[in-house]
C-alpha cells in the first residue's frame, strides 16, 4: 500500500465515491484492517476553545503514527468542543477520524441528522457509545437523554447505511458510507457476559471494537478466548485499548474514581517500585502493546492518554508496531508541517 493510499480523500467528490469492493466506507482504518495490517488508533482530547489551531496542534503528533483519530464526545460527561466539529476539521486536511457518539446527550432526531452531516463532510468511522452518566461530569444538573443505547444506535446507523432509511422508514437518497464501531470493557463485571454482549453489538452492526483500558492481560485473554469460541474473531476487528499510567498514585485514583477502569495490584506495585514512575508507566504501555499483538483475534491497538498526544506518539513509535509503515503526513496536510517526505 503506498503512503498515499493511507490518507482519506479530502476531495469532496472522492469522499462520496463508491467504497472499494467489500468495504462499507472510504476510511483508511477500514482499509488497513481489511488488509490484515495491525491497526493503530488514538484519541484526541477536545479543546475548551473555538480555535481550530488547538485541534490541529493536538492532532499533529497523532497523525504521524495512527490510522484514525478518535474525537471524543464529551467524555466523562464534561463539556468540550464537539466530536463532529473536530472530525470536520480533521477531514479537511485528510486525517482519518472516528466520530464518537454518546447516547447521553442527544436524542434519535439529533443523532441521525448528525450522522448524515458527518458522512457528508467525509467522516468514515463512527464509534457508538452509551456514555457516562451526567453525574460524573462538570454539569451534573443536565438532563440525561439516553434515547438510544449503544446497541440500538448501532442497528439504527446500519439501517441508515444499508437500507438507506431513517428509523421512521423515510428514505435517504444517499446512505452514509461509514465503518461502524463500538466499545467494550472486557475487564469489569459481569465478566462472563462481556463477550456475549460483544456478540450482541456485532449482531447490531459493529464492524470494529475499541476496548477500554486493559491492564489485566490474563483476564483479557480469557475474554478473547470466549470471543473466539463464539466465532466473533472473523466478524469484527478488535482494537485493544491501552494507555500509560503516570504514577502509582494516579493509577490508584483512577481505579477508585473513574468508572470502568480496572488496574490490577501488581501493575501498581511495579510502578511504585520504579525509580521514575512516569517512564515505567510508558514502558508498561509499550509492553502491553507488544503483548496485545500476540493475542489471536486482536487486530490493533487503541492508545489513549488524556491530553498527552506527544507521549502517545512516542509510545507507538517505540513499540515497533508500525513495522516501518510511514504514516507521516504530507506537507499539504499538516498545517504547520515539519514532516515532509
Amino acid at each position: 500500500m503506498s503512503n498515499d493510499a493511507l490518507f482519506d480523500p479530502i476531495d469532496p467528490l472522492k469522499v462520496h465515491a463508491t467504497p472499494p469492493e467489500g468495504h462499507s466506507s472510504n476510511s483508511r482504518l477500514e482499509r488497513v484492517l481489511r488488509q490484515g495490517r495491525f491497526a493503530v488508533t488514538s484519541e484526541l482530547n477536545p479543546p475548551d476553545s473555538a480555535n481550530p489551531e488547538d485541534v490541529y496542534d493536538a492532532a499533529r503528533p497523532l497523525s504521524e503514527v495512527v490510522d484514525a483519530i478518535n474525537a471524543t464526545d464529551a467524555s466523562g460527561a464534561n463539556c468540550h468542543m464537539s466530536s463532529l466539529g473536530i472530525c470536520s476539521l480533521l477531514t479537511r486536511v485528510g486525517y482519518s477520524s472516528v466520530l464518537q457518539i454518546s447516547c447521553r446527550d442527544r436524542n434519535r432526531i439529533a443523532i441521525q441528522g448528525d450522522v448524515l452531516g458527518a458522512a457528508a463532510v467525509g467522516v468514515g468511522n463512527i464509534l457508538c457509545l452509551t456514555g457516562d452518566g451526567v453525574g460524573v461530569g462538570d454539569q451534573p444538573g443536565a438532563k440525561p437523554v439516553f434515547d438510544f443505547d449503544s446497541i440500538s444506535l448501532l442497528r439504527t446507523l446500519r439501517t441508515m447505511r444499508d437500507e438507506k432509511m431513517f428509523l421512521s422508514g423515510r428514505r435517504i437518497t444517499q446512505g452514509p458510507r461509514i465503518f461502524l464501531g463500538a466499545a467494550e470493557n472486557p475487564c469489569i463485571p459481569p465478566y462472563e457476559v462481556r463477550a456475549d454482549r460483544l456478540q450482541k453489538k456485532v449482531e447490531a452492526g459493529a464492524q470494529f471494537i475499541q476496548t477500554n483500558y486493559i491492564y489485566d492481560v490474563p483476564r483479557f485473554e480469557k475474554f478473547m478466548q470466549r470471543v473466539r469460541d463464539l466465532g466473533l474473531e472473523d466478524k469484527v476487528f478488535i482494537l485493544a485499548g491501552v494507555g500509560p499510567l503516570a504514577s502509582a498514585r494516579a493509577a490508584r485514583w483512577m481505579r477508585a474514581n473513574v468508572p470502568g477502569i480496572h488496574v490490577p495490584d501488581h501493575v501498581i506495585e511495579r510502578l511504585e517500585g520504579a525509580e521514575k514512575q512516569g517512564a515505567e508507566g510508558k514502558k508498561i504501555c509499550i509492553e502491553l502493546i507488544q503483548q496485545m499483538r500476540e493475542i489471536k483475534g486482536v487486530s490493533g491497538v487503541h492508545v489513549m492518554a488524556y491530553r498527552r498526544e506527544e507521549l502517545v506518539s512516542e509510545i507507538i513509535q517505540d513499540s515497533g508496531v508500525l513495522e516501518g509503515r510511514h504514516a507521516a503526513p504530507r506537507g499539504r496536510r499538516a498545517r504547520k508541517s515539519e514532516a515532509t517526505d
Partner: peptide, 27 residues
C-alpha cells in the same frame, strides 16, 4: 437502569457488580 439501557450493561459497572450512577444499587 439510570441510563435506561435496553440491551445490556454499560462499561461502568463497579467491581462489586453495582451501578456506576447509583452505587447502592446492584446493576
Amino acid at each position: 437502569c439510570p441510563k435506561n439501557l435496553r440491551n445490556g450493561p454499560c462499561g461502568g459497572v463497579r467491581e462489586n457488580g453495582h451501578c456506576e450512577v447509583k452505587p447502592a444499587m446492584k446493576c
